[in-house]
């Protein structure tokens, strides 16, 4: 089986700040990480390869610093990685991104060997659209299923997947090639291994870079030019600074009294409290 797995290099979530003036993410100085939801996808791809043989190829459209992320995936055991990078790809929305990814998958198919499956994370932590798997599948005209947490091959060579929904677990069967996206946190990714790291450092060919002079995509379909959607506005919801008061109560009653007393001593808090009490007794939550 030849499996392609997607990777996005995203700002480390805890450290994302938003520029209060422009409303855009401040990426400068924020350390990036592999999109955490991509890791279960990598893990499933590796498990399939370990079971059925073949290879796993990681694919990312990103500026060059994402090599660090691809290195991480190779450390986990991905056989090789392709970085799709070019100035003209910058500023892509999900349509332009999926267009480039789909074409890269076609290229892998043509130049490296037949691709049977592409696996993606459910969504990314920095934009949460979850568009990419479906859009990529649409460009390729491949079947796709979301929220997968397990997959295996049937005897007649079809892909069988288990997907989890809020209150149901379903099994689907797909013809390959296919695209699946993996439910977030559903599979525990393996750690990187030292030997795989050494393999990355000693075999430069495990990481390939494809620029547009190689991909030859229509520049009107990629990057900013190929992106019909844009973020119109971002509103920063600032964290409300909270007072921290520590009180060591004697018992539960003492604690309750103290909480009530503190709330009532604050005008704003007591008003909110009264409102909430009225709401709950009147049955008309406000």
């Amino acid at each position: 089986m030849r499996i392609v797995v997607g990777m996005k290099w995203v700002p480390g979530t805890q450290s994302v700040r938003i520029d209060p003036k422009t409303g855009t993410l401040i990426r400068e100085g924020v350390p990036s990480i592999v999109n955490p939801h991509d890791l279960p996808a990598v893990e499933l791809a590796l498990r399939l390869r370990d079971k059925y043989g073949g290879e796993v190829i990681a694919l990312s459209m990103s500026p060059p610093p994402a090599i660090k992320g691809l290195e991480y995936l190779i450390g986990m055991g991905v056989d090789r990685a392709i970085l799709l990078t070019d100035r003209v790809y910058a500023g892509a929305d999900t349509l332009a991104t999926s267009y480039a990814l789909a074409n890269a998958i076609r290229k892998i198919d043509a130049e490296i060997g037949k691709v049977d499956l592409a696996v993606f994370g459910q969504e990314t932590t920095d934009s949460s659209t979850a568009h990419i798997p479906a859009q990529t599948a649409s460009w390729l005209n491949w079947p796709y299923v979301y929220y997968v947490r397990d997959a295996w091959l049937t005897e007649d060579g079809k892909l069988r997947v288990e997907r989890i929904l809020e209150n149901a677990i379903e099994e689907w069967e797909l013809d390959m090639p296919a695209i699946i996206s993996i439910a977030m946190k559903s599979i525990k990714p393996r750690p990187v291994s030292l030997l795989n790291k050494i393999r990355f450092k000693t075999n430069p060919s495990t990481l390939i870079t494809w620029t547009n002079s190689y991909m030859n995509l229509d520049v009107r379909c990629v990057g900013l030019k190929g992106s019909p959607t844009f973020v119109a506005k971002t509103v920063d919801v600032p964290e409300v600074p909270r007072k921290k008061i520590v009180y060591k109560p004697k018992d539960g009653e003492d604690a309750a009294r103290w909480i009530l007393k503190s709330l009532l001593s604050d005008e704003k808090a007591s008003r909110a409290l009264l409102k909430a009490l009225r709401g709950s007794s009147g049955g008309e939550g406000s």
Partner: peptide, 29 residues
Amino acid sequence: AIFATEATVDEIMFKDGKAVGIRSGNDVV
């Protein structure tokens, strides 16, 4: 030098009282 990051060495391996390498997870060098 081959520089491997994100890899924690779990153990220095000894054989007959001599250090012979390192182990990280299941990997031995």
